[in-house]
Design a protein around this nucleic acid. Structure first.
Length: 558
DNA sequence: CACTGAATAT
DNA sequence: TATATTCAGT
């Protein structure tokens, strides 16, 4: 298996958001540390006396991942108390005092580390390592729930290393040991957890083992995923991890310089379109030695002696928000009915992306647009659970932009309805019938897709322009064509309000057309199939005098 | 043959 | 689940 971005996802983001309890009687020192930590994207809660801190951890033991506790000559009894009370919380003692016995006592009582003030940035930055350490060493029932995701994340990564290193027996052996050690003994790595973790815990042993060029692309795309939105600090943290993974950098703290290469490479690949970044999906010059035997590349696939650079299994494309945004943009530019993989591919201009990749993604995209994933089949849809949804109208089908509008940001949709508009743009979510009791349409932003942090609500591209009106506000009464179609309108399932009644005619028109174009779908409540005459009459009212020949074609299904 | 879109596999 | 791969149809 290759390094997937997902596998690394949890890891590289990991330090970010880690919750730190900071107990420091010296408020200015506390503030300084808090500031630093927050710059490093830790979440810090400061306490100035141990009682507050104690009550905090006793009432909500899962609140924090790690604690930093100051020891002074005057308060160390209290802090020792904290230390004992916070056995499950990786705790780092900090102090101005240089008393060996105090240090020893702290450590003996379970502190992970004893640091002298002033704290270096590096020490602070790496406190997450204690969390990981604890996550792997804390056993049994004492294992804090808050650490589980972290452990899972790391386990996932280690597992991945295992699979990636088939070509290195030594490495694999080490990893097996490491993996089998997950649950308890880490002598091999750390000696014993009675002793303080060094400031650079041995987790790096595991990381160092990852040495597979295969990861590079994926890592880049992972990087790319985050770069758009995150500040430099967090980037440096994550690339720190990545670098140590890829290059075997052992000193995590020092790895910021090498980072620049990766970042630069990525920046270079960013095109001029203004997109935040660009994926470098390279599908031709690397090998995946661990390619599966089942694949056609079968027998000589493994460590093929003949092939220096064999055609390796393609990397999974990670459809990052950015990549997806390009995709959606391309689809929108093309218009739904022109959005075929090859053209999307052209418009996306993403190197290495294949038509197949796009086709696959397009398939999924369409599936969701057709809300093929029926969830909430109960009646709960009528009263939106999502407060946003209420104000969100899927208003109109995604239409092609005229060429001048091909900018790289999502344009307000000024739909262009070609004569074949309603046919050309089935926009199934918009026009599809909804059986009674069935969720009429789910705005894309609440699709049950994996939601990327920072993924914009319109990332899935559909309603790019929130309608200027709510159903109860001044709704233009004479919108031509189908623009007024509002499949989400409650009028399908809920009593018509007086205002909504104004829409009724339009809705009926819409319904009629829908019925014509999709005869296989059930009619909405209370409606009978229209007669051909009435349909034609309605159409002519809309200025459509002739019914396109394909209007009844089953080709509409596609 | 090259492509699409759906089905199926991983 | 997300993406890749396969497959049938054009």
């Amino acid at each position: 298996m290759v390094c997937t971005a997902n596998d690394l996802h949890g890891w590289k983001d990991f330090p970010k958001g880690l919750r730190v309890l900071l107990l420091d009687g010296d408020t200015s020192s506390a503030a300084e540390i808090k500031t630093k930590l927050e710059e490093m994207e830790y979440v810090v809660v400061t306490y100035c006396n141990e009682n507050d801190a104690l009550s905090a951890i006793s009432s909500k033991p899962e609140t924090f991942h790690v604690a930093i506790v100051e020891v002074t000559t005057s308060n160390h009894e209290g802090n020792f108390k904290f230390l004992e009370a916070a056995k499950d919380l990786p705790t780092i003692m900090i102090s101005n005092i240089h008393c060996l016995s105090t240090m020893m006592k702290c450590i003996a009582l379970g502190a992970m580390e004893f640091l002298q003030k002033p704290l270096s940035d590096d020490k602070l930055r790496n406190i997450w390592q204690h969390v990981v350490h604890k996550a792997f060493n804390a056993g049994g029932s004492a294992f804090p729930n808050s650490l589980k995701p972290i452990k899972e994340s790391v386990v996932s990564m280690l597992h991945l290393e295992l699979e990636n290193s088939e070509n290195e027996n030594q490495v694999q052996k080490n990893l097996e040991i490491l993996n089998s050690d997950d649950d308890n003994n880490h002598e091999l790595l750390e000696g014993s957890d009675k002793y303080p973790a060094p400031s650079t815990p041995q987790q790096k042993h595991g990381m160092r083992l990852v040495d597979d060029g295969d990861c590079q692309d994926q890592l880049n795309s992972s990087l790319e995923k985050e770069c758009g939105e995150q500040d430099g600090e967090s980037k440096s943290v994550e690339t720190t991890c990545i670098n140590s993974l890829v290059e075997g950098t052992s000193q995590v703290e020092n790895s910021q310089l090498p980072d620049q290469e990766a970042i630069k490479e990525e920046e270079n690949s960013a095109d001029g379109s203004g997109a935040a970044s660009n994926i470098d999906l390279d599908t031709h010059d690397q090998d995946n030695i661990s390619s599966s035997e089942k694949n056609k590349s079968i027998p000589c696939g493994l460590s093929n002696p003949c092939g220096t650079k064999i055609s390796r299994k393609k990397l999974k494309v990670d459809w990052t928000p950015e990549l997806h945004r390009k995709f959606v943009q391309a689809v929108e530019q093309l218009g739904v009915n022109q959005a075929i993989p090859s053209r999307i591919l052209e418009l996306m201009k993403v190197e290495g992306l294949t038509r197949h990749n796009v086709a696959s993604h397009l398939q999924k995209y369409r599936m969701h647009k057709r809300h093929i994933l029926p969830k909430e089949e109960d009646g709960s849809w009528s009263h939106s659970k999502d407060p946003m949804r209420k104000n969100y109208y899927p208003q109109r089908p995604v239409m092609a932009f005229p060429p001048p509008y091909h900018s790289n940001h999502i344009m307000p949709v000024a739909p262009i309805y070609p004569p074949w508009g309603h046919m050309a743009c089935p926009s199934p979510g918009v026009q599809m019938w909804v059986p009674p009791g069935y969720p009429p349409w789910r705005p894309p932003e609440i699709w049950p897709w994996k939601s990327y942090p920072g993924m914009h609500a319109d990332t899935w591209g559909c309603p790019v322009t929130p309608p200027p009106h709510s159903p109860l506000s001044s709704h233009p009464q004479h919108i031509s064509g189908f623009e007024n179609v509002d499949p989400y309108d409650k009028s399908y399932s809920i009593a018509f309000s007086p205002v909504e009644l104004q829409l009724a005619d339009e809705e009926i028109d819409k319904v009629v057309k829908e019925a014509i174009s999709k005869p296989w779908l059930p009619l909405p409540l209370g409606l009978k199939p229209p007669s051909t005459e009435s349909v034609l009459s309605e159409l002519s009212k809309q200025g459509i005098s002739t019914v396109p020949s394909h209007i009844n074609g089953s080709q509409l299904i596609q």
